[in-house]
Amino acid sequence: MSVLVTGGAGYIGSHTAVELLDSGFDVVVVDNLCNSNRESLRRVEALTGKKLTFIEGDICDANWLDQVFASHNIDSVIHFAALKAVGESVSRPIDYYHNNVSGTLALLAAMNKAGVSKLVFSSSATVYGSSAKVPYREDQATGGTTNPYGSSKLIIENMLLDCAKANPALSVAMLRYFNPIGAHESGLIGEDPQGIPNNLMPFIAQVAVGKRSQLSVFGGDYNTPDGTCLRDYLHVVDLAVGHVQALDWVANNQGAKPFNLGTGNGTSVLEMIAAFEAASGVKIPYEIVPRREGDLEGFWADSRLAEQELGWKAKLSLERMMIDTWRWQHGNPNGYLPS
């Protein structure tokens, strides 16, 4: 039996593919490569010494997706495929709702036709919205999202809850990520954003290798210890392990349930810069600029439910996140493209 990984050539998907193969799963990856690179999966196979099946295509294509399920003995699905840039979603809402929401609908329909009832969904802490109290807990109200990306994830969560009510056989773990960073310790796979990075860590790393001249820190006047935003950063390998453990949960439970995956610690932008400089030995020039619309002052996870029910807890330190990020970026200054 195989695990279907949608968007498996991307940052989190490729790291999860490593953990799946190392855990003995057969892996089928589907990806349209709109914001990922086929090279990542070649490196996954090199790292693990195992083969996976890759099929290029778009999950919004219902007929193609039906053929994927008909051609492979799929037992469960991990669903990453989505557009994910918060800022871009504000200017391209139609694309985000079409790709993220319609794509998930097509996937659910294909799963239903094929009789596949186990799903791990890549959700986001953005579903808690702007008024949620920290630390975020799964029993808090969701909503009040501040951008179409977060809204698309919340719509999908509600779809999954409705589908699970209608189909008692359906089992869904909705994993609400906080801020994944880092890379595989080999330095062979890591985060490879297309164009200007939307997230802090890859921007810092690109400044370090000379691709960017300096970092803009959005806001230095927040009510935090150093005036900059606080976020919950976790190692992408810890996150990937969480998906493997969630597969065990969906195999033994019914219904749809959310789980926070984070460290439970808030780290500021300036603390991130200092930690990277210590790990890499490279000075990061930065400028504090006005706040960015939609940014929240600070949030982090309460991940005790994931520890209780999935047996998952973040283990890798901030220092390790920085060391692994630098190893990846230093060794691959252009990401998966040739130097």
Rank of each mutant, 00 (worst) to 15 (best):
A9M: 10
Y11S: 08
S14G: 13
S14F: 09
A17Q: 03
D26W: 00
N37M: 01
L41Q: 03
E45M: 06
E45S: 04
T48I: 04
D58G: 07
N63A: 15
S71Y: 00
S71C: 03
A81Q: 04
I94K: 14
H98F: 14
V101H: 07
L105R: 05
M111C: 02
K113S: 12
V120K: 05
V127A: 11
S131N: 14
S131H: 12
V134Q: 09
G144A: 11
L154S: 10
N158G: 03
L161Y: 13
C163D: 14
S171I: 00
V172L: 09
P180F: 05
I189V: 14
D192F: 09
R212S: 12
V217C: 04
D221V: 00
Y222K: 11
N223Q: 13
T224V: 07
G227M: 05
L230W: 09
V237L: 06
V241N: 07
G242V: 04
V269G: 05
E271D: 08
E271M: 04
I273N: 06
F276M: 08
S280Y: 05
V282I: 14
E287A: 14
V289Y: 05
G294M: 00
E297V: 13
W300P: 06
E307F: 02
E309S: 13
A314Y: 10
L316G: 06
R327T: 15
G331S: 11
N332F: 12
G335Y: 06
Y336H: 01
